[in-house]
């Protein structure tokens, strides 16, 4: 197991009354460092559950997760908190910014828990916000920002502790297509320029194909397909774009066509 992330027979089971629901049902997966992996599948197929397990936000019911040599599945709460703080950056569909805090304070939040000195975290927050193009929005609160801007703040926050792993759960699900591609471009830049490993859940095939170096498709908590995006245009489900504003054909992601090869 030399992969950066590797899971073995990962299971997450929920018990609802008498019923047992296996949201993740025996997933074995290896992900290389620096890859940009898309996770696709129908609603309820277990994508978010898998991502939460990988991010140390949830405890698996069984199986193993090793990230960068750290055994995540058996970690205690405090160790998981540290893992989330130092190795993982989450980006969510609904941004999940703290509404009472300014953009800068939101970006500082992980660093507060990481006990980074005040002056340094303030400086770092500004740098990162500038990097995502929000240098002029430092003191705005989330309610004073557009959706795209909020998501960029969220990405900046995810990056503030310089994590190796960025986990994005439908980051474009709440954005119009134009803004969505801005956000996706940003994620790609992080992946390519800064070598962050990115795991992206998306409903939008276009986006998955345009940006990911590898696609993993789930169904009922199991992997039903795994490979480079070109090989995935399987006919399985029609592009399920119902929940979000459907993707217009004018897919604005021209720069790097199908994407690069798996780096390294």
């Amino acid at each position: 197991m030399t992969a950066y992330i590797s899971t073995r027979d990962l299971v997450k089971e929920y018990v609802l009354g008498r019923e047992r629901v296996r949201a993740v049902d025996g997933i074995t997966l290896d992900i290389e460092r620096g890859s940009f992996v898309g996770i696709v599948g129908r609603s309820g197929s277990g994508k978010s559950t898998l991502l939460n397990l990988l991010g140390g936000l949830d405890h698996p019911s069984g199986g193993q997760i090793v990230v960068d040599g750290t055994v995540v599945n058996s970690a205690r709460d405090d160790e998981l908190a540290r893992y989330r703080r130092e190795k993982v950056g989450f980006v969510f569909q609904f941004f999940n910014l703290v509404p009472s805090l300014t953009a800068r304070a939101n970006v500082e939040l992980p660093m507060i828990f990481g006990r980074i000195p005040r002056a340094e975290r303030s400086k770092r927050a500004r740098e990162i916000l500038e990097r995502v193009g929000l240098g002029h929005r430092l003191d705005h609160r989330p309610s004073e920002l557009s959706g795209g801007e909020q998501q960029r703040v969220a990405i900046a926050r995810a990056l503030s502790m310089d994590p190796a792993l960025v986990l994005a759960d439908e980051p474009t699900g709440n954005l119009d297509s134009r803004t969505a591609s801005d956000v996706m471009d940003l994620l790609r830049r992080l992946n390519q320029d800064h070598r962050h490993t990115v795991l992206l859940i998306t409903h939008e095939r276009e986006i998955a194909r345009a940006y990911c170096t590898r696609l993993v498709e789930l169904s009922d908590g199991k992997i039903i397909h795994d490979g480079p995006p070109a090989s995935t245009p399987t006919p399985t489900p029609p592009p399920v774009a119902t929940p979000a504003a459907s993707v217009p054909a004018a897919s604005p992601a021209p720069e790097s066509g199908p994407s690069t090869e798996n780096p390294r």
Binding site: G55, L57, D77, D78, A81, R82, R84, R85, E86, F90, N96, L97, V98, P99, L109, P110, F113, G114, R157, M161
Partner: peptide
């Protein structure tokens, strides 16, 4: 509640 979830997601320990 949500804010607490956010804090935890970005690395707050229970004791924080």
């Amino acid at each position: 509640t949500r804010e607490i979830g956010i804090m935890k997601a970005v690395g707050a320990r229970n004791r924080d």
